[in-house]
Structures are given as C-alpha cells and as structure tokens.
C-alpha cells in the first residue's frame, strides 16, 4: 500500500495524529515514498524551537522533559517529544521506556510523544530523529523536545539537530564528573543540575561553574540551573534560560542561516551514515577486518581505525 505523500502532508498540516505518526514511520523505516515525503518536509520553513536534552543514565532526562512540557502546556503551547532509547546490540530489538516518565501528558492530544530506537547509531540519536522533529514541527508542535539515548557515551548528534542543548547532571553520579573531565561540557548550551534536593548538589554546582570558567565563560551563572524535575522545581527558570539563550545569541537572520547550515549538515550526516554502513559491510567481507571480537570501547576504536585506514587505501 503506497501512501500518497501529498495526502500525508495535508494530514500532518491538519494535525491528524495518525498521519503524523505514519509519516514519521515512513521516513524512519525508509518505507516506499520516503524520499518525496522527506523533500516535502525539508522544504517546510521551520519556526519551532528544537530543545535537546542529553545526560548520563539516571540523570532524569525524561522527567525533565516531562516537567518542561508541563511548563509549556500551562502556556497553552503544543509540545512534541522525540525520545531515543538504545537498541539491543544482540537482537536489534529495543525497550523504549521514556514514555513511562511522561505520564502527566499521556492522552493529551496537544502533546505528541514518539519513541525511537537508536538502531545501532552511536551519536545519541536515532537515524531519523531530526526528520521526526521536523514533522512534529510541521504539525504545529513547538517546541519539540529531543531526548538522547543517554548511555553515557559522547552524544554529539543532538548538537546538529537542536537549537539549544540542555546537559543534565546529577550529584553523586560518577559519570557526571567524568563528563566534566572528558570535555563533554562542550555539548551543552545550558546545564541543568537535576535532583538538587540530594546531598552533593552544591558541590556539583561549584564544579560545573569552575569547569565553565576554566573554558573561558565568564558569565557562566546564566547557563547553569538547579532543578528538582520530579516536583517541577526550577523548571520555569530553565525555560526562561532557553529563551534568553536563543534570544541573546543571534539575530533572526543569523538563526536562519545557522539553521539552514545545520539542516544541511544533517542531510550530509544521513548520507554519510548510509554510505558508511555499506562500506563497513564491504570491509567486513573483504577479509581485511580483524576476525576476533572484543567487548571494550578501545577495541571498537581499534576496529574503526582499521576500517578508516582501509577506506583510504582501497583501490577505488
């Protein structure tokens, strides 16, 4: 059954939930007709704000997304959410559970939540996250919140999709401190120190401020927020911070330019992803790839490096 892209686009504009949902599937799964639908979505000028949320596992990303949604709903804005969870490397299946922490909006037709599996992608997003967000924007959801996988790896993809990225950190979490040291601070535009009612939150605040100052940010106070997302505490301040960040940073023209650039970057990313998939398959079949497996990150990096060398030197 070949869907009619025009009808789908009309359905998206009419805010028909089923049409929106199906359009997302068509692009995410590369179902027949996905190219023309992608073109139609790409042509649409975007005005909605994309808010990225990233952070270590257990830092409360979904709960923060839920609380931010409540804040915008109180102002009668329609909110879209794209939540990414990891696919199992063994079966390729996934359990997508972020929706569970967004129960305040379950059944609210003005909140559209879409869960996506990372499907092997490493940058923290699912392959068609940006397109999904764009479809939600087209259906009048603004803002669209994008929540990354959150498995503790460097999840940089969200930078190229979101207008503003919230890095969520929690006290007493070894990963957070690790993140500060590993320079993942660069991913976040704003820093949300969640679970601020827990012991150690003041120390975390001091650490984040110090790290920001070290990186040359004199005005770090306007970029760091403390929240208790389960109770909605500190969330209005985060929302104000998002507006201030977006407003102060650029003129409208700059914003549009940067957005165009990001959109194109995304398309390139998508193409690279597809081409690399193919090339890697060829590499594996070429007999040049190491045959013994491994489990660690460093072993994976070693295999990837071998792959890149092979790419550079292969005949065609």
């Amino acid at each position: 059954m070949q869907p009619d892209p025009e009808m789908l686009v009309r359905g998206i504009r009419d805010r028909n939930q089923q049409a929106v949902a199906r359009a997302i599937s068509i692009i995410a799964d590369r179902r027949p007709g996905w190219e023309s639908l992608l073109d139609a979505v790409g042509k649409e000028p975007r005005t909605a704000t994309f808010i990225g949320i990233t952070g270590a596992p257990g830092s409360g990303k979904s709960t923060l997304a839920d609380a931010i949604t409540s804040f915008y709903r109180a102002g009668n804005r329609r909110v879209g959410i794209v939540a990414v969870d990891p696919s199992s490397p063994f079966s390729g299946g996934a359990i997508l559970g972020d929706r569970l922490r967004m129960q305040d909006h379950a059944g609210d037709p003005d909140v559209f939540i879409r869960s996506m599996a990372s499907r092997g992608r490493l940058g923290g997003l699912a392959p068609a996250t940006a397109e999904t967000a764009a479809i939600l924007a087209m259906a009048g959801y603004d803002p669209v919140i994008i929540e990354t996988v959150g498995v503790g790896q460097s999840e940089v993809d969200v930078m190229s999709v979101a207008d503003v990225v919230l890095m969520v950190l929690v006290p007493g979490n070894g990963d957070s401190i690790q993140a500060l040291k590993a320079g993942v601070m660069e991913i976040g535009d704003l820093f949300v120190l969640n679970q601020a009612d827990r012991p150690g939150s003041d120390r975390l605040l001091a650490e984040v401020n110090a790290a920001l100052r070290l990186s040359g940010d004199e005005d770090c106070l306007s970029r760091v927020f403390q929240t208790v997302a389960t109770e909605g505490r500190g969330v209005p301040e985060v929302a104000t911070g998002i507006d201030a960040f977006l407003g102060s940073l650029q003129s409208d023209a700059e914003k549009a330019a940067s957005r165009r650039e990001r959109q194109f970057l995304r398309l390139v990313n998508l193409a690279v992803h597809d081409m690399t998939d193919e090339a890697f398959e060829a590499y594996r079949k070429s007999g040049c790839a190491p045959t013994e497996g491994g489990t660690s990150w460093s072993e994976a990096v070693r295999v990837a490096t071998g792959f890149l060398d092979w790419l550079r030197t292969r005949p065609n």
Binding site: T63, I95, G97, L100, R101, Q103, D104, E231
Partner: peptide, 10 residues
C-alpha cells in the same frame, strides 16, 4: 503531598 510516579522501566 503530590503524587508518586513510576520511574523505573526494565
């Protein structure tokens, strides 16, 4: 007091 929400998935 507010209400508790389930948080842990699997």
């Amino acid at each position: 007091f507010g209400e508790y929400r389930e948080e842990v998935v699997l």
